[in-house]
Amino acid sequence: MQLNNSAGTVKGKSSPFYSSKIRRKKLKVNWALFMFVLPGFLVYSVFFAGPTIAALVLSFTDWNGIAAELNFIGFSNYIELFTNDPIFYQSLTNNLKFTVSVLAFQTVLSLVFAIMLVKNTKANVFYRSIFFFPTVVASVSIAFTWNFMYDPNIGVINNTLSAIGLENLTQSWLGNPDIAIYSIAFIQFWMHTGQMLIIFVAGLHSIPKELYEAASIEGAGKWHTFRYVTWPLLAPSATIVVAYTTIQSFKAFDLIIATTNGGPSYATEILSLLLYHEAFNNFRFGYSSAISVIFMIIIAVITIVQFRILKSNDVKY
C-alpha cells in the first residue's frame, strides 16, 4: 500500500510522517538555541512590534498624550482623515512629489557617478569620499546651511545667479509654495547621492570581468554592454538603492522640519511631519497614530511592489 505509506500510516524511514517527527524531535533537542535569538526578539518586540501595536490601538482612541484613560472612538480618526482633512491629502501629494523627484535624480545620478568613478584610482577614491561626505554630516546642520544658501536676499544661490546675469532665475527657493518641496528634495538628493554611489560601485565591482570580455568579443558597444550586462547584474544593488531611497524620502523629517517646518501654508508638509504636528503641536495622539498606521501601510505596499519589480529583473549566473 504505497499510498498509505506516503500518508504516514506505516513507519517507514522514507515517510513524511517519519521525517516531520524527526524534525520536531530535532527542534526539541535544540531548544536552548532559541535563547540566542531571545535578546533580538526582545529588542524587536519592545522597540518595533510593541510601538506598532500601540499605534494601532491608539488610532482608535482620542488620546491627547496625557490623559490616564483611553477613550475608544472606533474608526472616527480614519473617517476624519479620509473625508475631512485636506491637509492629509496635501501632505500625501507633497510626499509623492518629494519621493519621486529624489528617487529619479538620486538613482540616475548616483549610477552615472558610480560608472564614472568605478575604477579604484586615487582620484576616484578621493571624489567618492567628497561625494560621500554630506552623508555623515547631521541633516539639521545641513538644513541650516542650505537655509542661508537659499535665502532669497542674502543667499549665495540668488547672488550668484544675479552676478552672472541670470537674475530672472532667482527665486524664493523655500518661500515659493510651487517650488519649496523640490528645493528641499534637492538638498535630500545632494545629501545622499554619495551614499547610493558607494552601493552602486560595490555592485559594479561584483560583476565578473569575464562577462565584459565576452560582450566585447561578441562585438557589443558601450550601450549594449550596459543594457545587457551591467544593468541586469546591478539589479540587487538597484533594489537596495531604490527601496532605501524611497523609504528614506518618504520618512524625511529632520531636513524638512529644520528648513521650512512644513510651510509656507503646508506646501512642504509631508506625512511624517503631519503626524508629528498632530501629536506634539495639536496633542492629538490618537489621530496622529491613525496617520502613522496609514503611513506604514503606504510604505509597506510601495516596498513590496518595488521588491517584486526589481526582483523580476534579477539575473542569476
Partner: peptide
C-alpha cells in the same frame, strides 16, 4: 522681496 523664503537668522 520673497519674504517667506527668508528665515529668522537671515
Amino acid at each position: 522681496e520673497n519674504p517667506l523664503g527668508t528665515k529668522k537668522a537671515g
